[in-house]
Amino acid sequence: MADLFDQLNDDNRQRQLIAEGAVCLPGFALEYVPTILEALGPIVEQAPFRHLVTPGGHTMSVAMTNCGSLGWVSDRRGYRYQERDPLSDNAWPAMPEIFLTLAQKAASEAGYQRFKPQACLINQYLPGSKMSLHQDKDENNKAAPIVSISLGVSATFLFGGLRRDDPCQKLILQHGDVVVWGGASRFCFHGVQTLKDSEHSLLGRRRLNITFRQIY
């Protein structure tokens, strides 16, 4: 399936319907970036990035942390949300107001009103990192959408169907792009291809993905 954004540049990229219930909002987060990065520093200082282990014993190539009243964790016992950081046994850092504001505005723009995320997952991709195809299904609230913000170097986002072997669309996500999916697309398989080695003027050789979840 053809890449959706291969022929588009920063000046003419348009809002893109990916699938029923799934929308890409190119550049939607750009005006918020300075405030986002300022708020991110204290979060990472309190709850540093770490490489989680899957229930099958595989160490994830993507490093992650959380903020909000709940954080997503993985270990040999399974995937789950919990109130405390397992590394420190402290509560996760509070979700900054700018994070919540941006998440709710993006959800509303995509057609999802009254989005109230309790968890914000922050993933750090370095060259060679990737995210295998998966579904987001650890949330009790199955009606609320997922809101995902891309910062830093570009990445190829894979968006498939409700079965792992369904064909995937390839979206080139750039700095400031936001993807929102819910409704009929809520349980679509998705992932990120191996990150190529490149450099961004603000974030260097890395990509940050900030993802919001409404757990209940």
Rank of each mutant, 00 (worst) to 15 (best):
residue 2 A to W: 04
residue 3 D to M: 06
residue 3 D to G: 15
residue 7 Q to H: 09
residue 8 L to V: 10
residue 8 L to M: 10
residue 13 R to D: 11
residue 14 Q to D: 06
residue 14 Q to R: 12
residue 20 E to P: 05
residue 21 G to Y: 00
residue 23 V to M: 15
residue 25 L to I: 15
residue 25 L to Q: 11
residue 25 L to M: 05
residue 26 P to N: 04
residue 34 P to I: 06
residue 34 P to L: 10
residue 39 A to N: 07
residue 39 A to W: 06
residue 41 G to R: 14
residue 44 V to I: 14
residue 48 P to V: 12
residue 51 H to F: 15
residue 54 T to V: 02
residue 56 G to I: 01
residue 56 G to N: 07
residue 56 G to K: 14
residue 62 V to Q: 09
residue 63 A to P: 08
residue 64 M to A: 11
residue 65 T to H: 08
residue 66 N to R: 11
residue 66 N to P: 07
residue 70 L to G: 07
residue 70 L to V: 10
residue 72 W to M: 10
residue 73 V to M: 00
residue 75 D to L: 06
residue 76 R to H: 08
residue 77 R to D: 12
residue 80 R to H: 04
residue 81 Y to F: 08
residue 83 E to Q: 02
residue 83 E to G: 01
residue 84 R to C: 07
residue 86 P to V: 06
residue 87 L to D: 14
residue 88 S to D: 09
residue 89 D to A: 15
residue 90 N to Q: 13
residue 92 W to M: 04
residue 93 P to E: 00
residue 95 M to E: 09
residue 95 M to A: 09
residue 96 P to C: 13
residue 99 F to N: 00
residue 102 L to Y: 08
residue 106 A to I: 12
residue 107 A to V: 00
residue 108 S to K: 15
residue 110 A to K: 10
residue 110 A to D: 14
residue 112 Y to K: 01
residue 114 R to Q: 14
residue 116 K to D: 03
residue 117 P to A: 07
residue 118 Q to W: 00
residue 119 A to S: 15
residue 129 S to K: 15
residue 130 K to C: 02
residue 131 M to K: 12
residue 134 H to G: 05
residue 135 Q to F: 09
residue 135 Q to K: 06
residue 143 A to F: 01
residue 146 I to M: 06
residue 147 V to Y: 08
residue 148 S to V: 00
residue 149 I to S: 00
residue 150 S to K: 01
residue 150 S to W: 05
residue 151 L to V: 13
residue 151 L to M: 07
residue 152 G to Q: 11
residue 157 F to M: 05
residue 160 G to R: 04
residue 163 R to E: 04
residue 164 R to C: 08
residue 166 D to R: 01
residue 167 P to Y: 05
residue 167 P to E: 02
residue 168 C to D: 00
residue 172 I to M: 11
residue 172 I to N: 15
residue 172 I to F: 04
residue 176 G to M: 02
residue 176 G to Y: 06
residue 176 G to I: 03
residue 181 W to S: 11
residue 182 G to Y: 03
residue 184 A to E: 11
residue 185 S to T: 07
residue 186 R to F: 09
residue 189 F to S: 01
residue 192 V to A: 14
residue 194 T to L: 03
residue 194 T to P: 09
residue 195 L to R: 06
residue 197 D to L: 12
residue 199 E to C: 06
residue 199 E to I: 02
residue 201 S to T: 12
residue 201 S to K: 09
residue 206 R to G: 11
residue 207 R to L: 11
residue 208 L to A: 02
residue 209 N to F: 05
residue 211 T to I: 00
residue 212 F to H: 10
residue 213 R to C: 07
residue 213 R to K: 04
residue 214 Q to F: 03
